[in-house]
């Protein structure tokens, strides 16, 4: 009796599970991934609201920036609105190679992620922003633990960025420390900025940090693909990564089979563009002025109806 009940139960489970995955029909919710920074929240929610206006069901699912590729490939997640060339390029290229995900074009924003110092450090280190001045000022940027080497606080290890390799290739007298999350990174920057203490850290934009903290980015030799791949390129002929990080695109990426399922929605996602200007202003309003992010998104939708209705024209 027990065995029979068990097998009926399992069969019912199986039937229910597989039956749900059967015929694709467009009322299925489109899952947009959400990460934990405001800019991406705004981008994704704007796209979500537009898709809703078009009549689609939209669901927002929180997922990690890199780990989400597993979900995008398996169809658990459908669209990711912000993949940054500066940090996500490798993961994105690898995922595109599997053939299960598809590149949905640029968002129109251009990002920078680089070594950054507060303006008041310029007095202590007059050669800045030239990277060659860094070695002369290593002591100015040092802490008791790293003395006499300077200290650079980089992003989490998963953001890559090759800062360890960069310091070595350019012969910088600096110890590269990795913050565990960006919360820790910005906590240190805020702490140092309040005390006008030295700090050299990873700052990026679109983000609220360069608006709140006045500072400048270090000028390294400009990035090129050969720099990362060919050791012979650049001033250090034996090592690669002797240049700055790429300044680049922010792209959208999606689950490939979704295009067949919601063709018009995917077209709208491809058409989505937003400028650094609009994004920068909205991020400032939410993160610095304390406005509610959903209100800011609604505002944009209200004021830019002409723009987004153009995205919804399907061929």
């Amino acid at each position: 009796m027990k065995a029979y009940c068990r097998s009926v139960f399992l069969a019912a489970l199986l039937a229910s599970g597989t039956a749900l995955g059967a015929a694709p029909e467009s009322k299925d919710p489109i899952k947009l991934t959400i990460h934990d920074w405001t800019g991406q929240y705004i981008t994704t929610h704007i796209m979500g609201r537009v898709l809703e206006e078009m009549g689609y069901n939209v669901e927002y699912q929180q997922a990690d920036y890199i780990a989400q590729f597993a979900g995008l490939e398996s169809g658990d997640l459908h669209v990711a609105m912000e993949m940054w060339e500066t940090t996500g390029k490798q993961a994105m290229d690898e995922s595109l190679k599997t053939g299960k995900t598809v590149d949905l074009g640029e968002t129109g924003m251009k990002a920078i992620e680089e070594w950054w110092y507060p303006l008041y450090m310029k007095e202590k280190c007059p050669g800045l922003p030239d990277w060659k001045a860094l070695n002369d000022c290593a002591e100015a940027f040092s802490t008791p633990e790293t003395h006499p080497k300077g200290r650079y606080l980089g992003g989490p290890v998963t953001w890559a960025g090759f800062d360890d390799e960069r310091a070595e290739a350019l012969g910088l007298d600096y110890e590269v420390v990795h913050a565990g999350t960006d919360a820790a990174l910005f906590a240190e920057i805020q702490s140092a900025y309040e005390r006008k203490a030295p700090i050299l850290a990873w700052v990026y934009t679109p983000h609220w940090a360069p608006i709140k903290f006045k500072g400048e980015w270090v000028e390294f030799p400009r990035y090129s693909e050969e720099c990362y791949n060919d050791p012979k390129w650049g001033m250090n002929t034996e090592k690669a990564y002797d240049c700055g990080k790429p300044r680049g695109w922010i792209k959208k990426v999606g689950w490939k089979d979704g295009e067949a399922k919601w063709p018009c929605a995917y077209q709208a996602v491809r058409n989505f563009t937003i400028s650094n200007q609009a994004m920068g202003e909205m991020v400032g309003e939410v993160d610095l002025d304390g406005k509610k992010v959903d209100d800011v998104v609604e505002n944009w939708i209200k004021n830019n109806e002409d723009t987004w209705t153009k995205w919804t024209q399907c061929s």
Partner: peptide, 21 residues
């Protein structure tokens, strides 16, 4: 949890593995 601060030990290994799936 301390890996979220920035250590270089087993905790960090587990955390990196999580973010890289």
């Amino acid at each position: 949890i301390t890996a979220l601060v920035g250590t270089r030990d087993l905790g960090q290994e587990v955390y990196i593995a999580l973010t890289k799936a």
